[in-house]
Design a binder for these strands. Sequence first.
DNA 1: TACCAACCTTACGAAAATAGTATAAATAGA
DNA 2: TCTATTTATACTATTTTCGTAAGGTTGGTA
Lengths: 199, 199
Amino acid sequence: MSKELTEKAKLLVNSARELFFKHGIKRVSIEEICQKANVSKMTFYNYFKDKDELAIHIADIILDAELNNLMENDAKPIHFEEKIRNHMLWSYQIYNESGNEFFSEALDADESTVFGKHVKEKTLEVFKFSKNMILKAQKKGEVKPGLKIELIMFLGDMTKKIMANPEIQKLYPDKIQMFKDICNIFYYGIINSEGDKPF
Amino acid sequence: MSKELTEKAKLLVNSARELFFKHGIKRVSIEEICQKANVSKMTFYNYFKDKDELAIHIADIILDAELNNLMENDAKPIHFEEKIRNHMLWSYQIYNESGNEFFSEALDADESTVFGKHVKEKTLEVFKFSKNMILKAQKKGEVKPGLKIELIMFLGDMTKKIMANPEIQKLYPDKIQMFKDICNIFYYGIINSEGDKPF
DNA sequence: TACCAACCTTACGAAAATAGTATAAATAGA
DNA sequence: TCTATTTATACTATTTTCGTAAGGTTGGTA
């Protein structure tokens, strides 16, 4: 897939992204992607080896954008709390534009598959950057001192999984509220607010 | 499917309802339904001829409940506007409990298929009752006089289709707002409010 | 005990959907 | 015109799904 993407290829990517987000990867066929994009199947195989490669490409676009957004926010001269709030908002808009089947699947993806392995690796990059960001914030006193970064990272990963969990989603007819609640527990629970004494 | 439903069969119905609502009928396999319900495939075929029969059964449950809810509200000594508001609320809760793929599909279902034909017929019953309800309301002066019931019914049908249209849904990140807007146009636009003069 | 109904597992062949390829023709821009 | 891109069609291979058969397990009941 090292080729430059033409108009037709972009149509395929967009069509696939919409379908994957809505239905998940395994429930969408290549022909369906082509039909939605009004592109012939041969053109699909001209640009992508198979469905997995296309899915990886889409995951990359999104995860790259996520990393980029994290970096942008981190570069701003604002409090950690605001950086996170900004990024939360951004994430919400991207991941919820039409369902979240794609990443529910991606996060649970079997690591033995090509797709699963790739997503895990890519996610790790974002993970590392976040970790560093939190570390810096902790040093500046914006995050509770003494908390292990590894623990915070683990909880951050859990946060995503919790949000993708159907049982949790059932509890919230309003997805935005769910998002806020879970993020609040994670982020604002670790903020070093003035009156707090270390536990 | 005239058999009484046992516990296992109910598990199948519930599991299928969830999956159908979320992914639509065609994207869900019988085995998947069985797995989710923790019921063997043979038991499935013991109660249902095929996926269509199960889908019809589920559609019946919901459409019967809808008709029932309409009747209940109609029996109350309240203004037409409130009857409709109650029913709207009920409908919203049912149809949006986890996506609406099932009825998007059902409403567009090919009439040549067994499923499509059945759903159309069943919908017609609800349709007839609504028609009568509107007619009564019109006679009582609660709906604008002069409006053809057939036109109102047609618009009512359109309303459902509009709500199921992906393009329209895209316009509304907030589905509740979409629902309100569309229903308001349909229902409250036809209400005989005090100051209005007949057009 | 013997029996029965509901359900299970395993296995299987048939049918349908999907994947992926080959070929030749159409299109559109340099 | 030459070239690159895209398309349509047609085909085979693979995978998924369907639907059935056979035999075993469980738990309640006469």
